[in-house]
């Protein structure tokens, strides 16, 4: 099963890289109608599991222990089309 884990800064945290991108889009590409740009990351994994409960437990555990810093980041995940 192919899983995509999406990791982003929490809304309350200032995303300075997102802000830098936003300024470039507004000023250099002229898209003044674009705002609230936030940059996250995704981690794709292939997991040898089909049971949804097991997958959720594993994803939660690896996010908790490594992939996500819970002080400043949130995550979600989705199953990619096989």
């Amino acid at each position: 099963m192919q899983i995509r884990i999406n990791i982003a800064l929490k809304k309350a945290v200032l995303d300075i890289q997102g802000k830098a991108i936003e300024v470039s889009l507004n000023k250099n590409l002229g898209y003044s109608q674009i705002s609230n740009v936030r940059q996250g990351k995704f981690v794709d994994i292939e997991i040898n599991e089909t049971d949804q409960e097991n997958i959720k437990n594993i994803v939660d555990d690896i996010c908790d222990k490594l992939l996500v810093n819970k002080i400043i980041e949130d995550y979600s995940y989705q199953i990619l089309k096989n």
């Binding site: 945290v13 300075i16 890289q17 830098a20 810093n69 002080i71 400043i72």
Partner: peptide, 16 residues
């Protein structure tokens, strides 16, 4: 901080 031996987190410098 990542080991939870100290509180908080170190983020990207404000002026990048």
């Amino acid at each position: 901080t990542e080991s939870n031996l100290l509180p908080g987190v170190l983020m990207r410098n404000q002026k990048i």
